[in-house]
Design a protein around this nucleic acid. Structure first.
Lengths: 215, 215
DNA sequence: GCATGTTTGTGTATTGACGACACTATGTAA
DNA sequence: TTACATAGTGTCGTCAATACACAAACATGC
């Protein structure tokens, strides 16, 4: 690594693909841009790296500023660094993926955000910058990681029925999984424990489970 | 993302963990630092992002400057961004992993590098900055990706014996695999094709194979 | 040319993971 | 009490992964 760095430094920002489950649909949090460029377009939440924080902290901070919650599940998945991806100045984007329960949060429009909304993944609007590409990679990454069923807990309340857990799986995977096979895997892996309580609804009650902490 | 960026921008650099196979040992390319900080210490090759290139291009360029070759296998695997990881200035490191044949390259010490050498992974010297952590994560990532045996081709000549391919596997995995099982997987996956030629050595000749391009 | 040494090359059996597949049980509501 | 909707449950076949041992081929040295 050379001593001297003859070039201007790029800005470094985190962009966060925040997913949640709304009425059975995997949905993405988007911010309406309040100024140029792409004024009025929708974009991923995110923001610039501050001097005293690392990238993970930056992503956590930005997400908290936007949603008010500390995400259970938030991790880096790719970088986006085309020189002209932002017309104003060079910005290297460090992309993060988050999962959280939408009902825990209250969306706050930031200083430059005109609006904030959840969009079902199947009906996203046009996105600013290269954010569509970022989202595509995020969805791919999310599905790859679904082999670890524990990520579903980030989308579920503390106690939940196995049907709810499977609905979450189906929504993330984008395709349904067999009920008996799903339950077998969940039980064999020791992911959940019975709370002893039952859900009550319009039909047969279901057992309520909670996450079993790995021992 | 705010319009204005009130903070000084960090420098952005790629650091590259370059692995090769030397005499059966998985080995890592290190550069001896020619100036402070950590003068005389060994460090990963890498360098700062130029204005007209993205991060992948930066990694390719730096690797080529250092080794003279375009790596077959070069990919991003993690970011390192602790605010104080470089005592001179803030540097965000985008870490890449490369595999290549050491016999194809001639090491060139760069302007600020006093020396460049291959070190067997089992006997690395102390490293500058947080490069030891980067290397640890790189090795873990490399072993995770070994499920894809095709990465081994980056370490092998155009034609090779299956024993050589397995030796490469064993070196990367850090543990031996059963010979018959290894061959079964390689053949069943259709990774190689017979060249029709034989190696000649001190003992029974072995069939030479080449990589079969996925059709 | 024969014996020795070293490496090549080959098949089967066990186990566990994954996926396909259908019916009964239990509650609510009309 | 009947109809309806959802909860809950087991088996079988296939494939992937692993463990495991011996004969064949060539080089070398005597």
């Amino acid at each position: 690594m050379p001593f001297t760095y003859e070039f201007p430094h790029p800005a470094v920002a985190t962009d966060i693909a925040v997913f949640t489950l709304i009425a059975g649909d995997l949905s993405l949090l988007l911010i309406k841009r309040g100024g140029p460029p792409f004024e009025g377009s929708w974009a991923l939440p995110g923001g610039f790296l501050a001097p005293d924080e690392d990238l993970d902290s930056c992503a956590h901070r930005e997400l908290k500023e936007e949603t008010g919650v500390d995400a259970e599940l938030l991790f880096h998945f790719a970088n986006f660094s085309a020189p002209d991806r932002d017309p104003r100045q060079r910005v290297v984007s460090i992309a993060y993926l988050a999962l959280l329960r939408f009902d825990l949060i209250t969306l706050k429009a930031g200083s430059d955000a005109a609006d904030a909304r959840w969009f079902p993944l199947a009906s996203l609007p046009n996105l600013a910058f290269d954010h569509r590409e970022i989202v595509d990679v995020a969805v791919r990454t999310l599905r790859e990681r679904l082999g670890d069923l524990a990520i579903l807990f980030a989308l579920l309340p503390q106690s939940f029925t196995l049907t709810a857990m499977q609905d979450a799986y189906d929504a993330v995977a984008g395709a349904p999984i067999d009920k008996r096979n799903f339950r077998k895997v969940v039980f064999d892996a020791g992911l959940v424990e019975d709370t002893g309580e039952l859900s009550r609804g319009r039909h047969r009650p279901a057992r309520l489970y909670r996450r079993k902490q790995p021992s």
